[in-house]
């Protein structure tokens, strides 16, 4: 069994759900799933022009892993362009922010403000939830 994937930290998820080609003669358009971490890797390396080492530190992963995520992200985008595919952004293996909690029961994500005393999931009242930063351990 391969080791569990470490969660990649990202600053913010992309502002869109996906990209769709237009002006194509294709009747049906398949889609490709771009993970948030791949979007973040491309953003850091090609938009913010960081080196892979700087970017990997930001995302809390090793440089080699960053390079691999970046590579798969670029390949997916290239594939989408050449094969006229839709790009959909999906969650992937990421941790968004310290303050988020993820319920293991109903998959709701939520925050717990200081004023709330009983720590339960607001959607299903289960206590089976964890912070998104602790999911690695």
């Amino acid at each position: 069994m391969p080791p569990k994937k470490k969660l990649r930290k990202i600053v913010a998820p992309p502002d869109f759900k996906g990209f769709k080609p237009y002006g194509t003669t294709k009747e049906s358009i398949d889609s490709i799933d771009l993970f948030y971490e791949e979007y973040e890797a491309i953003k850091l390396a090609d938009y913010k022009l960081m080196t892979h080492l700087e970017a990997s530190k930001l995302m809390g992963i090793s440089r080699a892993t960053f390079a691999r995520i970046y590579e798969t992200g670029r390949r997916k985008i290239a594939k989408a362009l050449v094969e006229t595919l839709q790009i959909k952004t999906v969650f992937g293996n990421v941790a968004l922010d310290k303050s988020w909690y993820l319920c293991n029961n109903c998959e709701a994500k939520f925050t717990i403000p200081k004023t709330i005393n009983n720590h339960i999931c607001p959607m299903c009242t289960s206590t089976n939830f964890e912070t998104t930063t602790n999911l690695n351990s």
Binding site: E107, F110, T111
Partner: peptide, 14 residues
């Protein structure tokens, strides 16, 4: 999120 966090509003994303 920042505004809501500062005012102690619980945010739930489903």
């Amino acid at each position: 999120k920042e505004v809501l966090d500062n005012n102690n509003v619980q945010i739930v994303m489903i």
